[in-house]
Simulated assay, not measured.
Amino acid sequence: MKVILIVALVLLVARQFIYEPVEVHGKSMMPTFEENDRIILMKISEIEPFDMIVFKVADEKNYLKRVIGIAGDTVEIAEGTLQINGVAAEEPYLKNNRLLASQGDYGQMAEDFPAITVPAGYYFVLGDNRLNSVDSRMIGFIKKEDVIGEVMFRLSPAKQFGPVE
């Protein structure tokens, strides 16, 4: 019985401070993540550009987005191309979305967005589904303390089970 209690206690503490399972809702990260996908967040990882994070927003909802800019970065979308510090960013995760945008007569994946610099203690985030995403273009910068964790592992669907890149 002691072993079971110790294991339960360790799991509870780990869930509180180290990891958290989350279910995906919404279409803003499609096709990277679909509605009802299940993922594991790591609460203690160092966030870097292009990591995917879950964070809280003012209306008590949790959002899943990709970090595009960190403190000091200048971010803009010019002629449909994401630029970070004046350099066009490679975004291989948008391949399918670019194809869908061109087939749907959308032209470019996102409207142009003027250059802004990310302040200290904040992130600039975008959804992979740029045509259908509420992200930093609308809600502004994300405070570091509002980040719940980084997406590290996919639990479902079963065919995509494993670490997230």
Rank of each mutant, 00 (worst) to 15 (best):
G104M: 08
D128H: 09
E76Y: 04
M1L: 07
A110G: 04
G72K: 09
Y93G: 00
G121L: 02
Q83V: 09
N97F: 01
K56G: 03
A88D: 02
I77T: 02
Y106R: 02
G72P: 09
V151T: 06
K144E: 15
S102M: 11
P92Q: 06
A101S: 04
K2G: 10
T32S: 13
I4N: 05
G140A: 14
K159R: 10
D128L: 12
L82A: 00
F153C: 11
E76I: 14
T81N: 02
A120G: 00
N62G: 08
S102I: 00
R98H: 09
E35C: 07
R15H: 12
V57A: 06
K143E: 12
G69T: 06
P114V: 04
V10R: 08
I39W: 00
H25G: 10
K144Q: 13
E23T: 10
P157E: 04
M109N: 04
I18A: 14
D146F: 14
K61L: 09
M29T: 08
S28F: 13
D105F: 06
E111W: 06
G121E: 03
R15W: 02
V57D: 03
A58N: 11
L131D: 04
L82R: 03
E46N: 07
I70R: 11
M30E: 10
I116G: 01
A89W: 02
F153S: 10
E23R: 12
A8F: 11
E60C: 07
S28A: 12
G80C: 08
P163T: 15
T32M: 11
V87C: 01
P157G: 13
A89N: 04
R66W: 04
E165Y: 15
V147T: 10
G104P: 01
D59P: 03
R154L: 10
Y122Q: 15
F50C: 05
L64W: 02
R137A: 09
Y122S: 13
R66H: 03
K65G: 07
K95D: 00
V134S: 13
M1D: 10
I40M: 08
M29L: 00
L9D: 01
E48D: 13
E145V: 13
D105A: 12
M30H: 13
V164K: 03
G69P: 06
D128E: 02
Y93T: 01
V10M: 12
G69N: 07
F55T: 01
F33T: 05
L155M: 13
E20W: 09
E35M: 11
G140M: 07
M1V: 10
Q83D: 01
A78P: 00
F141T: 09
G140R: 05
I84R: 11
F50W: 13
L41W: 10
I84Y: 01
D105S: 13
S156D: 06
V151H: 08
G127F: 11
I70Y: 08
L126V: 09
I68E: 00
